[in-house]
């Protein structure tokens, strides 16, 4: 774990909180609201990869637990992590893990369709875990819990498409994920032929477009 990984984890946790602050469309079903917050979860997975994405979401959970109003509509506190809707929050690290893991596996040949599948499967975990927890904690059959969440499906489809577009764009511009060892890593390791104009652009491509070399440097110098 290098400093930049910690920065990415913290910044994506913060981004997820900020997305929860964006204007919400209230839905009267079970007192829950629609917002962009779950987009933060999928994005963390597809942009940062499985490990960092899941850690970023765990960090959001910690922020909720210490009583910060970072959930959609300024909600927060431990009640959100133990109440009947807690499954939806706890599923974030798992969703990010799934989406990120798939993107890593497909990294060398990632396209929009694959990124979309990863994002959709990531969001699916939200429904599965959220509903199982809801049904279990309220003693109601899972089938009843499930149809009430159908209202979220259109929104999550849109969010998954957005996340897939972002994943593909970010892979081109600033790849942050290295391919899994079991796939061909040639593409990911190939340096970008960029035409950076400013100093900061150079620095950017220097640290990000050659993740393999950076990792090798970190390993060769134990003090860092």
């Amino acid at each position: 774990m290098r400093s930049k990984d910690i920065a990415l984890i913290a910044l994506f946790a913060a981004l997820t909180c900020v997305l929860g602050l964006t204007p919400v469309i209230p839905l009267p079903v079970l007192g829950v609201t629609f917002s962009l917050q779950t987009l933060g979860m999928i994005l963390a997975g597809v942009v940062l990869g499985a490990k960092r994405g899941a850690l970023a979401m765990l960090l959001v959970i910690v922020l909720v637990a210490i009583g910060l109003p970072v959930l959609t509509g300024g909600q927060g506190g431990i009640a959100k992590l133990v109440g009947p809707t807690a499954g939806f929050v706890w599923s974030w690290p798992i969703g990010a893990l799934i989406a990120g893991g798939l993107v890593e596996r497909w990294w060398a040949h990632l396209n929009l369709a694959k990124a979309l599948v990863a994002a959709l499967l990531g969001s699916l975990s939200l429904y599965v875990l959220g509903q199982v927890w809801l049904a279990w904690s309220l003693h109601i059959p899972a089938s009843v819990a499930s149809w009430s969440w159908l209202v979220y499906v259109p929104g999550d489809l849109v969010k998954s498409i957005v996340a897939a577009l972002v994943a593909v764009t970010v892979k081109k511009a600033y790849p942050l994920i290295t391919a899994r060892r079991d796939t061909t890593s040639a593409d990911a390791a190939k340096p970008q032929g960029d035409t950076a104009s400013s100093d900061t652009d150079q620095l950017w491509s220097g640290t990000a477009s050659t993740p393999v070399t950076v990792a090798a440097n970190a390993e060769s110098s134990p003090a860092s």
Binding site: D5, L15, V166, Y174
Partner: peptide
């Protein structure tokens, strides 16, 4: 409403580079 997301995410990813540099140079490591 969604068009502002792509620049925001790119900005966030770029910020992480600066913050990572700052963490290293300020001795976090």
């Amino acid at each position: 409403p969604l068009t502002y997301l792509a620049p925001l995410i790119i900005k966030t990813v770029r910020m992480a580079d600066g913050v990572g540099d700052a963490l290293e140079s300020r001795g976090a490591d």
